[in-house]
Design a protein around this nucleic acid. Structure first.
Lengths: 156, 156
DNA sequence: TCCTAGATAGGAAATATTCCTAGTTCCGTT
DNA sequence: AACGGAACTAGGAATATTTCCTATCTAGGA
Protein backbone atom coordinates (compact mmCIF):
# COMPACT_ATOMS: atom_id res chain seq x y z
CA UNK A 1 0.00 0.00 0.00
CA UNK A 2 1.31 3.37 -1.00
CA UNK A 3 0.90 6.68 0.74
CA UNK A 4 -1.47 7.86 -1.98
CA UNK A 5 -3.85 5.00 -1.18
CA UNK A 6 -3.77 5.90 2.49
CA UNK A 7 -4.70 9.47 1.63
CA UNK A 8 -7.61 8.30 -0.50
CA UNK A 9 -8.91 6.07 2.28
CA UNK A 10 -8.70 8.88 4.77
CA UNK A 11 -10.60 11.24 2.51
CA UNK A 12 -13.20 8.55 1.99
CA UNK A 13 -13.54 8.17 5.76
CA UNK A 14 -14.32 11.87 6.04
CA UNK A 15 -10.98 12.84 7.58
CA UNK A 16 -9.82 16.27 6.50
CA UNK A 17 -6.43 16.13 4.86
CA UNK A 18 -4.57 19.27 5.77
CA UNK A 19 -1.02 19.78 4.51
CA UNK A 20 0.25 19.31 8.06
CA UNK A 21 -1.45 15.94 8.34
CA UNK A 22 -0.04 14.85 5.02
CA UNK A 23 3.44 15.77 6.20
CA UNK A 24 2.94 13.75 9.39
CA UNK A 25 1.88 10.80 7.28
CA UNK A 26 4.87 11.25 5.01
CA UNK A 27 7.22 11.34 8.00
CA UNK A 28 5.69 8.16 9.42
CA UNK A 29 5.86 6.52 6.00
CA UNK A 30 9.53 7.38 5.58
CA UNK A 31 10.25 6.06 9.08
CA UNK A 32 8.75 2.74 8.11
CA UNK A 33 10.74 2.34 4.90
CA UNK A 34 13.93 0.36 4.92
CA UNK A 35 14.97 0.67 8.49
CA UNK A 36 11.74 0.36 10.46
CA UNK A 37 12.43 3.16 12.94
CA UNK A 38 9.31 4.30 14.78
CA UNK A 39 9.55 8.01 15.54
CA UNK A 40 8.93 10.17 18.58
CA UNK A 41 6.56 13.14 18.43
CA UNK A 42 9.58 15.45 18.57
CA UNK A 43 11.24 13.73 15.60
CA UNK A 44 8.05 13.97 13.56
CA UNK A 45 7.71 17.63 14.53
CA UNK A 46 11.21 18.37 13.23
CA UNK A 47 10.49 16.62 9.92
CA UNK A 48 7.20 18.46 9.41
CA UNK A 49 8.85 21.80 10.28
CA UNK A 50 11.22 21.42 7.36
CA UNK A 51 8.29 22.26 5.13
CA UNK A 52 5.99 24.03 7.61
CA UNK A 53 8.24 25.85 10.08
CA UNK A 54 5.31 27.19 12.10
CA UNK A 55 3.65 23.90 12.90
CA UNK A 56 2.98 23.41 16.60
CA UNK A 57 3.63 20.34 18.76
CA UNK A 58 -0.07 20.29 19.55
CA UNK A 59 -0.86 19.64 15.91
CA UNK A 60 1.49 16.68 15.85
CA UNK A 61 0.00 15.16 18.97
CA UNK A 62 -3.57 15.78 17.82
CA UNK A 63 -2.87 14.28 14.41
CA UNK A 64 -1.19 11.23 15.90
CA UNK A 65 -4.13 10.72 18.26
CA UNK A 66 -6.58 11.02 15.36
CA UNK A 67 -4.68 8.51 13.25
CA UNK A 68 -4.32 6.20 16.25
CA UNK A 69 -8.09 6.13 16.72
CA UNK A 70 -8.46 5.20 13.06
CA UNK A 71 -6.02 2.35 13.53
CA UNK A 72 -3.63 3.96 11.06
CA UNK A 73 -0.94 4.68 13.62
CA UNK A 74 0.34 2.61 16.52
CA UNK A 75 2.29 3.64 19.57
CA UNK A 76 5.34 1.55 20.42
CA UNK A 77 7.60 1.70 23.45
CA UNK A 78 11.23 0.72 23.65
CA UNK A 79 11.72 1.14 27.41
CA UNK A 80 13.71 4.34 27.09
CA UNK A 81 10.88 6.47 28.42
CA UNK A 82 10.10 7.74 24.94
CA UNK A 83 6.83 7.17 23.09
CA UNK A 84 7.27 6.34 19.44
CA UNK A 85 4.76 6.07 16.63
CA UNK A 86 4.64 4.04 13.47
CA UNK A 87 2.34 3.67 10.51
CA UNK A 88 0.16 0.57 10.34
CA UNK A 89 -0.11 -0.69 6.77
CA UNK A 90 -2.12 -3.61 5.46
CA UNK A 91 0.02 -6.72 5.28
CA UNK A 92 2.78 -4.96 7.15
CA UNK A 93 2.18 -6.60 10.51
CA UNK A 94 5.44 -7.01 12.37
CA UNK A 95 7.17 -6.75 15.73
CA UNK A 96 10.42 -5.25 16.98
CA UNK A 97 13.92 -6.19 17.97
CA UNK A 98 15.33 -3.30 20.00
CA UNK A 99 18.86 -2.47 21.08
CA UNK A 100 18.90 -1.23 24.68
CA UNK A 101 22.09 0.72 24.07
CA UNK A 102 21.63 2.62 20.79
CA UNK A 103 17.84 2.46 20.77
CA UNK A 104 17.64 1.39 17.15
CA UNK A 105 15.10 -1.21 16.14
CA UNK A 106 14.78 -3.90 13.53
CA UNK A 107 11.64 -5.43 12.13
CA UNK A 108 10.76 -8.94 13.27
CA UNK A 109 8.67 -10.98 10.81
CA UNK A 110 7.61 -13.44 13.52
CA UNK A 111 4.32 -13.20 15.33
CA UNK A 112 3.29 -15.19 18.42
CA UNK A 113 -0.08 -16.03 16.88
CA UNK A 114 -0.46 -19.28 18.80
CA UNK A 115 -0.01 -17.38 22.03
CA UNK A 116 -2.82 -15.06 21.03
CA UNK A 117 -5.11 -18.05 20.55
CA UNK A 118 -4.23 -19.30 24.02
CA UNK A 119 -4.86 -15.86 25.48
CA UNK A 120 -8.30 -15.77 23.87
CA UNK A 121 -9.06 -19.19 25.35
CA UNK A 122 -7.73 -18.04 28.73
CA UNK A 123 -9.94 -14.92 28.72
CA UNK A 124 -12.89 -15.59 26.41
CA UNK A 125 -14.73 -12.41 27.45
CA UNK A 126 -11.81 -10.13 26.71
CA UNK A 127 -12.06 -8.40 23.33
CA UNK A 128 -8.57 -8.51 21.85
CA UNK A 129 -7.70 -5.50 19.72
CA UNK A 130 -3.98 -5.65 19.19
CA UNK A 131 -0.78 -7.08 20.58
CA UNK A 132 2.90 -6.30 20.79
CA UNK A 133 5.92 -8.59 20.90
CA UNK A 134 9.20 -6.83 21.52
CA UNK A 135 12.62 -8.36 22.02
CA UNK A 136 15.26 -6.33 23.87
CA UNK A 137 19.00 -6.78 23.91
CA UNK A 138 22.21 -5.57 22.32
CA UNK A 139 22.87 -5.30 18.61
CA UNK A 140 26.15 -6.61 17.14
CA UNK A 141 27.55 -3.08 16.73
CA UNK A 142 26.86 -2.08 20.33
CA UNK A 143 28.23 -5.36 21.64
CA UNK A 144 31.50 -4.57 19.87
CA UNK A 145 31.55 -1.03 21.23
CA UNK A 146 30.73 -2.23 24.72
CA UNK A 147 33.71 -4.53 24.56
CA UNK A 148 35.92 -1.53 23.82
CA UNK A 149 34.41 0.42 26.68
CA UNK A 150 35.17 -2.51 28.96
CA UNK A 151 38.79 -2.66 27.78
CA UNK A 152 39.28 1.03 28.40
CA UNK A 153 37.80 0.77 31.84
CA UNK A 154 40.11 -2.09 32.72
CA UNK A 155 43.21 -0.44 31.29
CA UNK A 156 42.86 2.79 33.19
CA UNK B 1 10.87 -15.36 46.65
CA UNK B 2 10.00 -13.00 49.46
CA UNK B 3 10.91 -9.36 49.86
CA UNK B 4 13.36 -10.26 52.64
CA UNK B 5 15.32 -12.43 50.22
CA UNK B 6 15.46 -9.59 47.71
CA UNK B 7 16.85 -7.29 50.38
CA UNK B 8 19.50 -9.84 51.30
CA UNK B 9 20.55 -10.25 47.68
CA UNK B 10 20.81 -6.51 47.23
CA UNK B 11 22.99 -6.14 50.31
CA UNK B 12 25.16 -8.95 49.05
CA UNK B 13 25.52 -7.12 45.72
CA UNK B 14 26.84 -4.06 47.55
CA UNK B 15 23.71 -1.98 47.02
CA UNK B 16 23.00 0.33 49.94
CA UNK B 17 19.58 -0.26 51.39
CA UNK B 18 18.21 3.05 52.57
CA UNK B 19 14.74 3.21 54.11
CA UNK B 20 13.49 5.00 50.97
CA UNK B 21 14.70 2.21 48.73
CA UNK B 22 13.08 -0.38 50.94
CA UNK B 23 9.79 1.47 50.69
CA UNK B 24 10.08 1.57 46.91
CA UNK B 25 10.69 -2.16 46.91
CA UNK B 26 7.73 -2.69 49.22
CA UNK B 27 5.47 -0.63 46.95
CA UNK B 28 6.57 -2.60 43.88
CA UNK B 29 6.13 -5.85 45.77
CA UNK B 30 2.60 -4.93 46.83
CA UNK B 31 1.76 -3.93 43.27
CA UNK B 32 2.77 -7.37 42.08
CA UNK B 33 0.66 -9.27 44.60
CA UNK B 34 -2.76 -10.46 43.61
CA UNK B 35 -3.65 -8.06 40.90
CA UNK B 36 -0.45 -7.59 38.92
CA UNK B 37 -0.70 -3.84 38.52
CA UNK B 38 2.59 -2.25 37.49
CA UNK B 39 2.88 1.22 38.97
CA UNK B 40 3.86 4.63 37.67
CA UNK B 41 6.60 6.65 39.34
CA UNK B 42 3.94 8.99 40.71
CA UNK B 43 1.98 6.13 42.27
CA UNK B 44 5.12 4.75 43.89
CA UNK B 45 5.98 8.24 45.14
CA UNK B 46 2.60 8.55 46.85
CA UNK B 47 2.99 5.16 48.53
CA UNK B 48 6.49 5.95 49.80
CA UNK B 49 5.35 9.35 51.07
CA UNK B 50 2.88 7.68 53.40
CA UNK B 51 5.85 6.72 55.53
CA UNK B 52 8.41 9.29 54.35
CA UNK B 53 6.51 12.47 53.47
CA UNK B 54 9.64 14.34 52.41
CA UNK B 55 10.84 11.90 49.79
CA UNK B 56 11.52 13.52 46.41
CA UNK B 57 10.49 12.32 42.94
CA UNK B 58 14.16 12.27 42.03
CA UNK B 59 14.79 9.58 44.64
CA UNK B 60 12.03 7.42 43.16
CA UNK B 61 13.38 7.77 39.64
CA UNK B 62 16.98 7.16 40.72
CA UNK B 63 16.00 4.13 42.73
CA UNK B 64 13.96 2.68 39.89
CA UNK B 65 16.85 3.24 37.47
CA UNK B 66 19.26 1.54 39.87
CA UNK B 67 16.99 -1.45 40.30
CA UNK B 68 16.38 -1.59 36.57
CA UNK B 69 20.12 -1.86 35.90
CA UNK B 70 20.27 -4.73 38.38
CA UNK B 71 17.46 -6.48 36.53
CA UNK B 72 15.27 -6.28 39.61
CA UNK B 73 12.77 -3.89 38.07
CA UNK B 74 11.29 -3.79 34.60
CA UNK B 75 9.58 -0.94 32.79
CA UNK B 76 6.30 -1.80 31.07
CA UNK B 77 4.17 0.33 28.80
CA UNK B 78 0.46 0.13 28.27
CA UNK B 79 0.18 2.67 25.44
CA UNK B 80 -1.40 5.34 27.60
CA UNK B 81 1.72 7.46 27.59
CA UNK B 82 2.54 6.43 31.14
CA UNK B 83 5.65 4.49 32.17
CA UNK B 84 5.00 1.79 34.70
CA UNK B 85 7.37 -0.33 36.72
CA UNK B 86 7.15 -3.80 38.16
CA UNK B 87 9.30 -6.07 40.27
CA UNK B 88 11.03 -8.97 38.52
CA UNK B 89 11.04 -12.03 40.75
CA UNK B 90 12.58 -15.43 40.08
CA UNK B 91 10.01 -17.79 38.65
CA UNK B 92 7.57 -14.93 38.21
CA UNK B 93 8.06 -14.49 34.49
CA UNK B 94 4.83 -13.33 32.88
CA UNK B 95 3.27 -11.01 30.34
CA UNK B 96 0.30 -8.65 30.31
CA UNK B 97 -3.26 -8.39 29.11
CA UNK B 98 -4.19 -4.72 29.14
CA UNK B 99 -7.54 -2.96 28.86
CA UNK B 100 -7.26 0.08 26.62
CA UNK B 101 -10.20 1.72 28.37
CA UNK B 102 -9.63 1.36 32.13
CA UNK B 103 -5.88 0.73 31.90
CA UNK B 104 -5.96 -2.22 34.26
CA UNK B 105 -3.81 -5.24 33.50
CA UNK B 106 -3.96 -8.93 34.10
CA UNK B 107 -1.11 -11.38 34.25
CA UNK B 108 -0.67 -13.72 31.27
CA UNK B 109 1.02 -17.04 32.07
CA UNK B 110 1.86 -17.66 28.40
CA UNK B 111 5.23 -16.89 26.91
CA UNK B 112 6.11 -16.89 23.19
CA UNK B 113 9.25 -18.92 23.85
CA UNK B 114 9.28 -20.52 20.39
CA UNK B 115 9.22 -17.06 18.83
CA UNK B 116 12.28 -16.12 20.85
CA UNK B 117 14.14 -19.12 19.47
CA UNK B 118 13.25 -18.06 15.95
CA UNK B 119 14.38 -14.51 16.67
CA UNK B 120 17.73 -15.80 17.90
CA UNK B 121 18.11 -17.85 14.71
CA UNK B 122 17.09 -14.82 12.63
CA UNK B 123 19.67 -12.58 14.32
CA UNK B 124 22.41 -14.82 15.73
CA UNK B 125 24.70 -11.89 16.61
CA UNK B 126 22.07 -10.05 18.63
CA UNK B 127 22.40 -10.60 22.37
CA UNK B 128 18.86 -11.09 23.66
CA UNK B 129 18.30 -9.75 27.15
CA UNK B 130 14.58 -9.68 27.64
CA UNK B 131 11.28 -9.61 25.84
CA UNK B 132 7.74 -8.38 26.25
CA UNK B 133 4.47 -9.75 25.00
CA UNK B 134 1.48 -7.53 25.62
CA UNK B 135 -2.10 -8.03 24.49
CA UNK B 136 -4.37 -4.99 24.23
CA UNK B 137 -8.13 -4.84 24.11
CA UNK B 138 -11.22 -4.34 26.23
CA UNK B 139 -11.97 -6.16 29.47
CA UNK B 140 -15.45 -7.63 30.07
CA UNK B 141 -16.36 -4.83 32.49
CA UNK B 142 -15.43 -2.06 30.07
CA UNK B 143 -17.17 -3.83 27.17
CA UNK B 144 -20.35 -3.77 29.24
CA UNK B 145 -19.90 -0.10 30.11
CA UNK B 146 -19.13 0.77 26.51
CA UNK B 147 -22.37 -0.86 25.48
CA UNK B 148 -24.19 1.43 27.88
CA UNK B 149 -22.38 4.45 26.54
CA UNK B 150 -23.40 3.40 23.06
CA UNK B 151 -27.04 3.03 24.08
CA UNK B 152 -27.06 6.44 25.70
CA UNK B 153 -25.49 8.00 22.66
CA UNK B 154 -28.11 6.49 20.42
CA UNK B 155 -31.01 7.39 22.68
CA UNK B 156 -30.11 11.05 23.00
C1' DT C 1 -17.86 30.78 -4.85
C1' DC C 2 -19.64 30.35 -0.35
C1' DC C 3 -20.20 28.20 4.11
C1' DT C 4 -18.95 26.01 8.21
C1' DA C 5 -17.36 22.17 10.92
C1' DG C 6 -13.25 21.09 12.01
C1' DA C 7 -8.28 22.23 12.01
C1' DT C 8 -4.27 25.27 13.15
C1' DA C 9 -0.78 28.50 15.58
C1' DG C 10 0.93 30.32 19.47
C1' DG C 11 1.25 30.98 24.04
C1' DA C 12 0.38 29.32 28.45
C1' DA C 13 -0.37 25.62 31.57
C1' DA C 14 0.04 21.05 33.35
C1' DT C 15 2.73 17.02 33.83
C1' DA C 16 6.83 14.22 33.82
C1' DT C 17 11.67 13.76 34.40
C1' DT C 18 16.32 15.13 35.39
C1' DC C 19 19.97 18.15 37.22
C1' DC C 20 22.49 20.35 40.94
C1' DT C 21 24.38 20.92 45.48
C1' DA C 22 24.70 20.99 50.31
C1' DG C 23 23.85 18.08 53.82
C1' DT C 24 22.96 13.24 55.55
C1' DT C 25 23.51 8.28 56.24
C1' DC C 26 24.53 3.36 55.51
C1' DC C 27 27.84 0.14 56.41
C1' DG C 28 32.61 -1.80 56.30
C1' DT C 29 36.45 -1.09 59.17
C1' DT C 30 38.47 -0.15 63.27
C1' DA D 1 30.58 1.64 69.64
C1' DA D 2 32.57 5.11 66.94
C1' DC D 3 34.66 6.56 62.58
C1' DG D 4 35.18 7.77 57.70
C1' DG D 5 33.86 8.12 53.28
C1' DA D 6 31.46 6.77 49.31
C1' DA D 7 26.95 6.70 48.25
C1' DC D 8 22.53 8.58 48.99
C1' DT D 9 18.83 12.15 49.81
C1' DA D 10 15.92 16.56 49.86
C1' DG D 11 14.65 20.47 47.76
C1' DG D 12 14.57 23.63 44.39
C1' DA D 13 15.40 24.70 39.80
C1' DA D 14 15.77 23.38 35.08
C1' DT D 15 14.34 20.75 31.22
C1' DA D 16 11.33 17.85 28.49
C1' DT D 17 6.94 16.28 27.27
C1' DT D 18 2.12 16.75 26.56
C1' DT D 19 -2.18 19.17 26.75
C1' DC D 20 -5.22 23.22 27.01
C1' DC D 21 -7.18 27.52 25.28
C1' DT D 22 -8.86 30.66 21.87
C1' DA D 23 -8.73 33.59 17.93
C1' DT D 24 -8.11 32.66 13.32
C1' DC D 25 -8.01 29.95 9.22
C1' DT D 26 -9.19 26.38 5.70
C1' DA D 27 -10.57 21.88 3.31
C1' DG D 28 -13.96 20.28 0.94
C1' DG D 29 -19.03 19.71 0.30
C1' DA D 30 -23.14 22.35 -1.48
Amino acid sequence: MLLQDVLKELRKAGIRLTPQRQEVLQALFDGLQGDCQPQSAEEILQVVRKRYPGVSPDTIYRTLATFQKLGLVREVNFRDGCRRFELVLQGGHHHHLVCLRCGRSRELPFCPADCLVRVQEYCPDFEIEDHAFTVFGYCPKCREENRNVFRETVEI
